[in-house]
Nucleic acid binder design. Structure first.
Length: 638
RNA sequence: GCUGCUGUAGCUCAGCUGGUAGAGCGCGUCCUUGGUAAGGACGAGGUUAUGGGUCCGAGUCCCAUCAGCAGCUCCA
């Protein structure tokens, strides 16, 4: 007999060798029906596992979050069988679960196309209907290796697996796959699924290896959950900044310059509003602002180390027979400005910001709307200071960064610290000092962070800031990078207290990262419905008919005098159509006016997304709107 | 850069196995002068991404180039 401890604290005695499934049945028929897998002493196992000692057991049902992963993994096996039955020459590689679903990498010369998904799903449905059991078989590592000796992918998987026992799972007639498990008891329990997409993926993520086909699928406990998930995907699609940018006439791309964004006047209003805010904050934090040239002599880039470490991403040109480079970063230019005159320790720290336009030749396949472009504006800054000042300067940058993020409603951030990469300049000692300074500042601000070993820039370690948008998607924005080597390379010095020349420390930092990308992020974050202070057009006056054109002009002038961005819709349309059009353009405020309003110097205010409307005096509206702009308020209600 | 898919009117898309382009929205003109999420009529718009090829004939089939999309690798 074995003593089984259950999650509610109770114990149950069962015969030695009782399977978990039998245990579930003894507890209750409902539980047995709902059971997907189990956890024995912290380890996830199949229901068919026998209990042979005193253990604690938790039966996992679809209510537990672990079940979804198990289900999806099983679903991946079902998909693998379906693919193998359609294309018998398929070699299976690896099929894990991912967030929201699973994929299976397969080696198959014939391309699987989206039109084939239906066929795969049909085959899967047959396998699910058969409801055949998942059967686990364990053999020794040696046996497994000889069994699969002809299969380089599975042999590789065995070599990567831990332990001496290698397990296989089979279901139905003949389908078997190397797998750690656990699995749902039978193919009928893989949930509601859908094949999502297919794309190429290198074996082991290594570009020198064969390109495999990665088939993505998703599965959920119920059809309803699957439909909800597909619905959310639809919603995210509507928020796509590439779609909204086109629809709202904010920016565009053209074949004439792949990866180079064209900012339209609407997009530039958003841009300039952010710049105004950004400048005011930087001014308050003691930054000066400079602007350095986009094209600089190639020699400079040899000196900075970019030629050796970043050449493949740079654009080059020639002027009067002399080599020039288009800047991919602003720091060398910043160093030249520093060098323009002498500096004393008394001036330190010197904080110099630059909205620098940089060009980087990104691989053609990685471009993505405003998120990944070949030309972008960094909200860069370089701080020159003494080693003693590093920590407090970093603390200052962190405070400034958080203040800016909060203005856009980003409250959920996390920080990552990246250390020395393989390709780097500077001594190990330098790297240690720099890395410790960053850690010190984070400790002082009591900020938790994650460490990414080997992920730093070639000239120094860095801290990266990540934010989460309203759809809980994470984005990297700001970065702080310590640099002890660039000042040395450029021969930057300052005169210290003891009247000797010393090399300053240089801190590179960006808060928003790239203006282009940040604008893309906030478009998605706000779903195109920009807060008043960022909205390209803030108010539109909608006269009921031509008879009110004159009063519309009066209202428009009042709005313009108050500094609000506005227009009047004088089109020959009924009021309903004008409202619908303004809503489509995501106008924050619509002021409906007719003879009634004209009589009392009033406006009837309609707010974006709100059905009810309210008549107020012009002055009252202006006062409220002006305050909302100044306070960067998101709520539009008056 | 790699793999796969896509490219038709300003936008979103239709166009079956090859037989000389179509809708809705938008745009223009006119009618209508209206009270809160799209009134009506008429009309203008396309070397079907580009360049080759097969064919009596190509939006449709084949090849190349360019661009976009989904991923992979890389990255702000």
């Amino acid at each position: 007999m074995a003593q089984v401890k259950l999650p509610d604290g109770s114990t149950k005695e069962v015969a030695n060798g009782t399977t978990v499934e039998e245990l579930a049945r003894q507890i209750g028929a409902g539980l047995a029906r709902a059971a997907i897998a189990a956890r024995i002493d912290e380890q996830l196992v199949d229901l068919s596992v026998p209990i042979t000692a005193d253990v604690s057991v938790q039966i996992i049902t679809s209510k537990d979050k672990e079940s979804l992963e198990i289900m999806r993994h099983s679903c991946a096996h079902v998909m693998a069988e379906a693919i193998c039955s359609i294309w018998p020459e398929t070699k299976l590689v690896y099929g894990p679960t991912v967030e929201d679903g699973f994929y299976y990498d397969v080696d198959l010369d014939e391309a699987i196309r989206p039109v084939d998904f239906e066929l795969i799903e049909k085959k899967m449905t047959e396998i699910v209907k058969a409801d055949s059991s998942f059967v686990r078989k364990e053999i020794s590592r040696e046996e497994a290796l000889s069994k699969l000796s002809g299969d380089k992918y599975k042999t590789d998987n065995i070599n990567r697996a831990e332990g001496d026992v290698i397990s296989f799972y089979s279901h139905g007639d003949g389908f078997e796959d190397l797998c750690r498990g656990p699995h749902v008891p039978s193919t009928g329990k893989v949930g509601s699924f859908k094949i999502m997409s297919v794309a190429g993926a290198y074996w082991h993520g290594d570009p020198t290896q064969k390109m495999l086909q990665r088939v993505y699928g998703t599965s959920w406990s119920t059809k309803k959950e699957l439909d909800e998930y597909l619905q959310i995907l639809e919603e995210a699609k509507k928020r796509d900044h590439r779609v909204l940018g086109k629809q709202l006439d904010l920016f565009s791309f053209n074949e004439a310059g792949p990866g180079f964004a064209f900012m339209h006047s609407g997009g530039m209003i958003i841009w300039n509003s952010i710049v105004d805010f950004w400048r005011s904050v930087h001014n308050r934090y003691g930054y000066g602002e400079i602007k350095t040239p986009i094209i600089l002599n190639e020699e400079l880039w040899h000196k900075s180390g970019h030629w050796d470490n970043y050449k493949e991403n740079m654009y080059f040109s020639e002027i009067d027979g002399v080599g020039y480079a288009i800047k991919p970063m602003n720091c060398p230019g910043g160093c030249l400005v520093y060098k323009f005159r002498q500096h004393s320790y008394r001036e330190f720290p010197i904080r110099v910001a630059e909205l620098g336009l940089v060009h980087r030749h990104e691989a053609s396949g990685v471009m993505h709307g405003l998120f990944r472009v070949r030309q972008f504006t960094q909200d860069d800054a370089h701080i020159f200071c003494t080693p003693e000042q590093i920590e407090s300067e970093i603390v200052g940058v962190i405070e400034l960064t958080f203040e800016i993020y909060r203005a856009f409603g980003f409250e959920d951030f996390h920080i990552e610290l990246s250390t020395k990469p393989e390709k780097h300049i500077g001594s190990d000692e330098m790297w240690d000092t720099a890395t410790n300074a960053l850690k010190g500042a984070l400790k002082r601000k009591e900020i938790d962070y994650q460490i990414n070993e080997g992920d730093g820039a070639f000239y120094g370690p860095k801290i990266d800031f990540h934010i989460k948008d309203c759809l809980k998607r994470s984005w990297q924005l700001g970065t702080i990078q310590l640099d002890f080597s660039m000042p040395e390379r450029f021969g930057l010095v300052y005169t210290d207290k003891d009247n000797t020349e010393k090399t300053p420390v240089m801190i590179h930092r960006a808060v928003l990262g790239s203006f282009e990308r940040f604008i893309g992020i906030i478009i998605e974050h706000y779903g195109g419905s920009m807060p008043l202070w960022l909205a390209p057009e803030q108010v539109r006056v909608l006269p009921i008919s031509e008879k009110s054109s004159e009063y519309a002009e009066v209202v428009e002038n009042r709005l313009k005098d108050a500094g609000l961005r506005c227009s009047v819709d004088l089109s020959n349309e009924k009021i309903g159509a004008k409202i619908a059009k303004a809503h489509g353009e995501k106008l924050p405020y619509m002021l409906v006016i007719g003879p009634k309003e004209a009589e009392t110097n009033a406006v009837n205010v309609r707010i974006r997304g709100v059905q009810e409307n309210k008549t107020v005096g012009i002055d009252e509206f202006l006062e409220s709107a002006k305050c909302k702009v100044v306070d960067k308020e998101i709520d539009l209600s008056i």
